[in-house]
Design a protein around this nucleic acid. Structure first.
Length: 639
RNA sequence: GGGGUGGUAGUUAAGUUGGUUAUAACGCCGGCCUGUCACGCCGGAGGCCGCGGGUUCGAGUCCCGUCCACCCCGCCA
């Protein structure tokens, strides 16, 4: 072994040799991808992170005659070493780590077009086994069908596979492009603590018991939010960090308990300034990670922007997938005007508004429709299948449908009998329904209607083949969703809580509404959305103490606790805080979407399962009583 | 916290109305093979059917519980 490591040294990686290298003596190190033994000569595909090279062990090449057609035997030929190498080749098995010295030979017309090095092979003159390997728990092929449970248990094997190697390499490129771009943009990469003070509200924190202050706890930072604002107060002007964040919430296909953000904060900026900087960053990332110029998709270098309210109205959520249409139509006003149009369910809602029980300004209950075009050609069982998919939305009670006949009448519908012809015609016109279309209705509490219809929209698109089950499908639909409400109703009547956090700056024109109609106060907050995923979000912060006070007045009882929780920030903001704002990109999600990976787990080297466990190490684990005693912590329920 | 899907050889799957010895492919082991590249041919080993109860003459199959993984809702500023 030492001869290979100390003397020979690796000359090439397994993906680099080409026809031009024929005749060179090379040294390759790698893992045995596969072995094909023909008794006499043995072929091995040798793999490293750069690719695969076929190496050949052939005893015939011990004889000078065999070299005649290759221009004579090479200087490095030693019959004994070659024979030894062939003996080794008989023993070598998959995933063994080997080193070889050999000569690059042309494969003539016998090329393998599937690999980049397919024009050549390396005839082995000398070989060594660095290490044997247990038979892997699963076959390390590119298109794997092994259960994820098993792959996660042997993550170091799974990571040997080319698809995952490609993704982690792409992450590296994203990181590098980010550092270059943001550094060039004048941002300083500054670090913030992970062990921070626990603050209630927002995401649940992981807690870390303190040994030195027994009975007290740190929290793991859910984001560097407060600290990056303090950097602005301190005059660093522009900051970024590629930083781990920790949130103890339930997991999803696009959520992990620890994840990475590209975190940015800027002084003396407005919303547009943040957008411009980030658009440039995303363009740079695409160039670096995919080699793609996003100007092909967004020629002016900008992403479209829509207000939060419009996003909710048209798509039912704040992260719409714009790769397809299927927009929602809000029928609430029409239904009110029609007095329900003969449909009892609609009439109930209309009455509540006409009687003044519900406020037309705020619309707590709504009626929405979505048209499945006739072209979708969905059968009745397929439509029922779609409805079934909505059942996991809590509170979902059913989806009213109506198939539009040639004369505009409705069939296959519980509403067909009761709806008045006039109302039917008005609704058909409002939703733009044509013959054969299926109109889906949802009505009731606004949140539920939005959730159901948002899911329906995506389900229909997948069913129609407008978007793939996962992956980008070659489309990159970015947009900014801007200016959501600053407050949302609290538990008590007439109380308000901050929709995001209490330090977001209200939209200037809405400042007078703070005292009169808080529900309608929008704020300078924004999300960056790609193909239906929120990949980033941020806000312009509230740095003006007077407005800050008025916001706290609306929040009422939250004021005291805000002082207790964020007193240091409030003090800081009064100490000479520049106007500032920022954003954080979910870098794992960006990597997932760019790579087309089906889950976040595929773009994180060592991810957790849905239960937050590590299948490989078994974490989290119980600990000794003595360790708990050091921390003054006691486990109450049996583990 | 709620809903859904799944767990059978190392891996992926099949397994009928409950019925003799639980199948297959790939992988693995042995033998043969000098141009394979999904090498080929011959032979072989390999099973707590997730775990624990129950029903039954008899359970991979039916019932109850439980664990694990995945997907969704709540939650995630």
């Amino acid at each position: 072994m030492s001869r290979f490591i100390d003397d020979l040294k690796r000359t090439h990686r397994c993906g680099s040799l080409r026809a031009a290298d024929v005749g060179k003596e090379v040294v390759l190190f790698g893992w045995v991808e596969s072995r094909r033994d023909h008794g006499g000569c043995v072929f091995i595909d040798l793999r490293d992170r750069e690719g695969i090279t076929q190496i050949v062990f052939d005893p015939a090449y011990a004889e000078a005659d065999t070299w005649a057609s290759r221009g004579g035997a090479p200087a490095g030929l030693d019959k004994e070493l070659l024979a030894k190498a062939h003996d080794l080749a008989e023993q070598i098995r998959g995933e063994w780590v080997v080193g070889i010295r050999g000569v690059v030979l042309s494969r003539g017309s016998n090329v393998n077009p599937k690999i980049a090095t397919g024009e050549i092979e390396v005839l082995v003159l000398e070989a060594t086994v660095f290490n044997k390997a247990d038979t892997p728990a699963f076959e390390l092929k590119d298109d794997i069908d092994t259960r994820e449970e098993v792959r996660l248990q042997y993550r170091y094997l799974d990571l040997r596979r080319a698809p995952l190697q490609r993704i982690l390499r792409m992450r590296h490129e994203i990181n590098r492009a980010t550092r270059n771009y943001l550094s060039d943009a004048g941002c300083l990469e500054l670090e913030t603590p992970f062990l921070v003070k626990y603050t209630p509200g927002g995401a649940r924190n992981f807690l870390v018991p303190s040994r030195l202050s027994q009975g007290k706890f740190y929290a793991l930072a859910e984001s560097p939010q407060l600290y990056k604002q303090l950097f602005m107060v301190a005059g660093f002007d522009r900051y970024f960090q590629i930083v781990k964040c920790f949130r103890d919430e339930d997991l999803r296909v696009d959520r992990q308990p620890e994840f990475t953000q590209i975190d940015v904060e800027l002084s003396f900026v407005n919303q547009d300034d943040v957008f411009t900087l980030m658009e440039g960053l995303v363009f740079a990332i695409y160039k670096a990670a995919l080699g793609q110029d996003l100007h092909d998709v967004f020629p002016d270098g900008r992403f479209p922007r829509i207000p939060f309210s419009e996003s909710m109205a048209k798509y039912g959520n704040d992260k719409p997938d714009l790769r397809f249409g299927l927009e929602h139509v809000d029928l609430t006003d029409l239904v009110i005007e029609l007095g329900g149009g003969g449909v009892p369910f609609f009439a109930e809602i209309a009455d509540r508004y006409t009687s003044g029980a519900l406020s037309r300004a705020h619309k707590p209950q709504i009626v929405k429709a979505l048209v499945i075009p006739a072209a979708a050609n969905l059968s009745r069982p397929q439509l029922e299948e779609l409805e079934k998919g909505l059942r996991d939305v809590k509170g979902f009670r059913g989806l009213a449908r109506a198939k539009v006949a040639e004369d505009g009448s409705w069939t296959q519908s519980p509403l067909a009998k009761s709806v008045t012809p006039d109302a039917r015609a008005r609704i058909n016109a409002a939703v733009g329904a044509k013959t054969g279309d299926v109109i889906c209705f949802q009505f009731g509490l606004a949140d539920l209607v939005h959730t159901v219809m948002a899911k329906l929209r995506v389900d229909v698109a997948k069913r129609m083949g407008l978007i793939p089950e996962y992956g980008h499908g070659g489309k990159w639909k970015f947009l900014w969703v801007t200016n959501p409400p600053l407050f949302e109703p609290g538990d008590g009547e007439g109380t308000w809580v901050a929709a995001h956090h209490a330090f977001t700056r209200p939209v200037d024109e809405h400042l007078p509404l703070l005292e009169t109609d808080p529900a309608r106060v929008e704020c300078y907050r924004y999300d960056l959305v790609l193909n239906g995923f929120e990949i980033g979000g941020g806000s312009i912060r509230l740095h003006d103490p007077d407005v800050q006070q008025r916001v706290f007045n609306v929040l009422g009882i939250e004021l005291e606790s805000a002082r207790e929780k964020f007193g240091f920030l409030l003090d800081a903001l009064r100490s000479g805080a520049p106007p500032h704002g920022g954003i954080a990109l979910g870098m794992d999600r960006v990597a997932m979407l760019l790579s087309g990976a089906p889950t976040l787990r595929d773009v994180i080297p060592f991810p957790k399962t849905n239960q937050g466990t590590d299948q490989m190490t078994g974490a989290p684990v119980t600990v000794d009583a003595s360790q708990l005693a050091d921390l003054a912590v006691r486990v109450v329920s049996a583990p």
